[in-house]
Design a protein around this nucleic acid. Structure first.
Length: 570
DNA sequence: GCCGTTTTCGGCCCGACTGTTTTCAGTCG
């Protein structure tokens, strides 16, 4: 089982317990444990196989949950969950996800109207049946119908790059409101999560709350959900929800801190504050009723003796302990990047010529770049060996024109079904670096897939494993693969692992990036650009790298060309 | 159900907003 499977099971238990009206702290305990597992860099399976490792040493996992996890591991099932499923229909979980409905109302709908599916719920709402229920009225019923429509229209969160499309013009618009002083997007957007559920915008004004009316009047607004003096909430036509909070200027830092989250990070810091008799909320840090910090985030952190922690690290994944010890990483910056090591030209499925790509990379100040067209196994886009040879000659000619950038001859070589490479060694020998990747046959077993990729990595000419898990955010799950084994082999063989900066890939994900770092494996951040504009996706790759705790020195393409080639060498 | 420099019981983050209510429960973040 994968860690996500354990986490999902515990999450389902939490949902079902919540529907039963169980103690909220018991529910939270399951959620905390699920989160611990989901963000663990080691797999639960390997941990259970390790005699010295104990589940109860993990945060939020005690004797009881350790036993349940072990039962899952050994039998693939959980008796407790089976019992819960007998008592409450699991389909209520879906109903509970509709905005304005929660566990209480979902249970009420089931008990009073025998509603167990979204279809049941829609029928009931359309026939005004919800109005009979205590606590329900016209507005709530209408909101349920809208919620169902939304649910059917869109699954999943917005990719960070999609959120940017809506966020940037909205922020420009909001800044034009009367008296705006500070304006910033907090939440998962500020933490640069790969996807965001909504946008949390904070503002301060010199006087008045005119910005609230300005906000709900924005052209892109489809629905106003909440409209109060300090908080308003809208849904844009795209389906993206945006919250705007107006806070006092003297407590802007506390609010920014509070609404940046993550929730888990905030709770952990609150715990430290509590030990010291302090209270933290969005208005400040309080000793009794006296505010002792509020104006800046630095003040808030200082009040609990912590240095300022970059938003990307605020996930309660060890950043508080490291901050306490003065060991926070100095995170990589976009300007540290000196080259881009995956991009496609017209020869395969790219839009631009090599010449255009070179110009674009020079404009971005890069010292080196690699052209990595696809190989023949990709029937539609692959480049034939003879064409690669011609391409390399063109690169040699082109290179004569420039002494400010090195054009590396390469290819994104397909890993075939048994781990063979899609090009012969004599062609690989012509390349400066060799990038390999899986593009087909995603459905093999975990063991087969791992064996396949490991075999390819062991080929003496290979330097970089591209998008190692194959996932596409919101579109395709990663193929099953033992990522710990890939990291181990990368370490052993001196292979660089790619962090693919395409906003829909961001593969490796943050916790795997951190895992590679801890194992001493260097990462390359590559855009995999198929057109010039996509070279600018580098920033999303750097965001993800920061979330994986990477420093400049952890990333191979922050080094000079000579140093990079040395790092890539087997 | 977890956790512990107030340690084996008694806490566990907490405030804003809404809709339906007549004083507040439920949801949300």
């Amino acid at each position: 089982m994968e860690n996500v499977d354990y986490a999902r099971t515990l999450g389902e238990i939490a949902d079902l317990l919540e529907l039963q009206g169980a103690n909220v702290f018991r529910v939270r305990a399951y959620r905390n444990a699920a989160r611990t597992i989901e963000t663990l860099s080691q797999s639960i399976d390997s941990l259970l196989e390790d005699e010295d490792a104990r589940l109860v040493d993990l945060p939020s996992i005690g004797k009881d949950l350790a036993a349940k996890i072990t039962e899952l591991y050994e039998t693939g099932e959980l008796e407790f969950l089976a019992e819960l499923r007998e008592e409450v229909p699991t389909s209520l979980i879906e109903i509970m996800r509709i905005p304005s409905l929660g566990p209480k109302r979902a249970k009420q709908l089931w008990e009073a109207l025998d509603i167990t599916s979204i279809d049941d719920l829609e029928d009931a709402a359309r026939s005004d049946a919800l109005l009979e229920l205590p606590g329900f009225g016209e507005t709530l019923q209408a909101r349920v119908l809208t919620g169902i429509k939304q649910l059917r229209a869109r699954v999943g969160r917005f990719k960070l790059s999609e959120a940017d499309v809506y966020a940037e013009p909205l922020v420009d618009y909001l800044r034009k409101a009367e008296g705006v002083v500070d304006l910033e997007i907090a939440g998962s957007y500020r933490r640069r999560c790969e996807t965001v559920g909504d946008l949390d915008i904070l503002a301060t004004t010199s006087q008045g709350s005119a910005i609230m009316d300005h906000f709900v009047a924005y052209g892109g607004v489809e629905d106003v959900l909440v409209n109060g003096p300090t908080k308003s909430s809208v849904r844009l036509a795209s389906g993206l929800q945006v919250d705007l909070r107006l806070v006092a200027r003297e407590s802007y830092g506390a609010a920014l801190y509070y609404f940046t989250g993550s929730k888990a990070h905030n709770i952990a810091v609150r715990g430290i504050a509590r030990e010291r008799g302090l209270k933290v909320n969005e208005y400040g840090v309080f000793s009794g009723d006296d505010p002792i910090a509020a104006a800046t985030e630095e003040d808030v952190f200082a009040s609990v003796d912590l240095p300022w922690i970059p938003p990307e690290l605020r996930e309660d994944r060890g950043e508080i302990q490291e901050a306490r010890a003065g060991r926070l990483p100095k995170l990589i910056e976009l300007t540290d990047i000196r080259g881009d090591l995956q991009m496609h030209s017209q020869s395969s499925d790219g839009e631009n010529t090599i010449d255009e790509l070179v110009q674009a990379c020079r404009e971005r100040g890069y010292e080196y770049m690699a052209i990595t067209d696809h190989t023949p196994a990709l029937a539609m886009n692959g480049v034939e060996p003879s064409e690669f040879k011609k391409q390399y000659k063109r690169i040699d000619k082109l290179q004569e024109k420039y002494d400010d950038i090195r054009i590396l001859k390469s290819a994104e070589v397909d890993i075939l079904g048994e781990g063979e490479l899609d090009l012969d060694d004599d062609l690989l020998d012509l390349m400066d670096i060799v990038v390999i990747a899986v593009h087909t046959r995603f459905t093999m077993s975990r063991a087969q897939m791992t064996r396949r990729i490991v075999r390819a990595m062991q080929h003496r000419k290979v330097n970089i494993l591209a998008h190692p898990t194959g996932r596409l955010i919101n579109r395709r799950e990663p193929y099953p693969v033992d990522i710990e084994e890939l990291v181990r082999v990368a370490r052993e063989e001196g292979i660089l692992l790619e962090l693919n900066a395409q906003p829909h890939r961001l593969d490796l994900r943050d916790i795997y990036v951190q895992m590679a770092k801890l194992a001493g494996v260097k990462i390359v951040i590559s855009t995999d650009a198929h057109r010039i504009i996509e070279l600018d996706h580098m920033r999303y790759g750097v965001d993800q790298a920061r979330r994986g705790w990477l420093e400049r020195t952890d990333v191979a393409n922050t080094y000079s060309l000579a140093q990079f080639l040395e790092l890539a060498k087997r």
